[in-house]
């Protein structure tokens, strides 16, 4: 049985795992980056990052003090009658106290901080309804350092792929060391202004070792990744070979008269986690087993 209590507990557990351990693909990307660096300064940055990841995992402590705001992607089977949103929100409250998470969520204008990471539309929920029989919850704990560097461009169709490349190159240079490189660049192309923003974030949910299924898009991902790593911004903007761990692209059809492109930066502390709750109440951790 999927009960509200179970969902709350699973959300709490998922948050604890997600903020204290990075997904395997990201950790591997960072290790590879460390191996490939030859200069002292960037090598030391990556060494500190890898040491930090190990310390966080061993001591069950948040990888980064900015545990972010919590953005959820929920895939709902039919027939679930409990209030999933309420249960997850409670899980966020509890995680804030118990993990603990830093209380980051504030009113956008008064800047008042309720202290529990809960407020109007926060945590934020994205829903999908599907015909599988289990509930799937994915969370992204998104820090501000990388989010603040993100950008939307409403390009003209005539700017085309060249315009997209130019935009990405300029933005990565502009962001420089601020989003805690090596970063993952999430690109949402097409749709509308808001849809491209959502796609950019969804692109970041895909592991970096999994190229887009569309070979043309996969080629663009690879081309951009290689080009960006030639910039030499390096870990923390102190110079070096690895500026990005990956470039992930998602796209949607758009109006013939527009070309929206959103870029969402993900810092090296790419905290995303997925869990499934099956109808009999079994819980299956997808990204953070064990």
């Amino acid at each position: 049985m999927i009960t509200e209590d179970l969902v709350r507990e699973v959300a709490l557990d998922l948050l604890r795992r997600t903020v204290t351990r990075l997904p395997a693909d990201v950790e591997k990307g960072l290790k590879d980056a460390f191996e490939s660096e030859t200069e002292e300064v960037p090598k030391m940055q990556l060494k500190a990052i890898l040491e930090n990841i190990k310390l966080a995992k061993d001591n069950v402590k948040p990888v980064c003090q900015d545990t972010g705001i919590t953005i959820f992607y929920v895939s709902m089977p039919t027939g679930v009658e409990i209030d999933v949103e309420k249960a997850i929100t409670e899980g966020v409250r509890q995680a804030t106290k118990e993990v603990p998470l830093r209380p980051n969520a504030v009113h956008p204008m008064t800047r008042k901080n309720p202290g529990d990471n809960v407020g109007l539309r926060m945590p934020y929920f994205n829903y999908k309804f599907w015909d599988r029989d289990y509930l799937e919850i994915t969370v992204m704990a998104k820090g501000a350092g990388s989010e603040n560097m993100s950008k939307l461009a409403m390009l003209t169709p005539s700017q085309g792929i060249k315009g997209i490349k130019e935009f990405v190159l300029n933005e990565v240079v502009r962001a420089s060391g601020n989003p805690c490189p090596p970063t993952i660049v999430g690109l949402g192309i097409g749709g509308s202004a808001d849809i491209s923003g959502k796609l950019a974030k969804e692109a970041l949910m895909r592991p970096i070792d999994q190229p887009n299924e569309d070979p043309e898009i996969a080629k663009l991902e690879k081309e951009l990744k290689e080009a960006l790593n030639e910039l030499g911004i390096g870990p923390m903007g102190l110079g070096g070979k690895t500026t990005v761990l990956g470039v992930n692209i998602e796209y949607a059809y758009c109006h013939t008269a527009s070309l929206p492109v959103s870029l969402n930066f993900q810092c090296w502390a790419a905290r995303r986690g997925t869990v499934q709750i099956h109808p009999d109440g079994t819980v299956k951790h997808i990204t953070h087993e064990g």
Binding site: A48, E51, N52, Q65, D66, C180, C267, A269
Partner: peptide, 28 residues
């Protein structure tokens, strides 16, 4: 420059918290 995000490592370099001022501004 200290490594961004390496929060647990940085915390290892802090042996004590002496106190806090202006707590009303919020924890961060």
């Amino acid at each position: 420059a200290i490594t961004g995000g390496a929060a647990v490592l940085a915390a290892q370099g802090v042996k004590k918290v002496h106190g806090v001022h202006w707590f009303e501004l919020g924890m961060p």
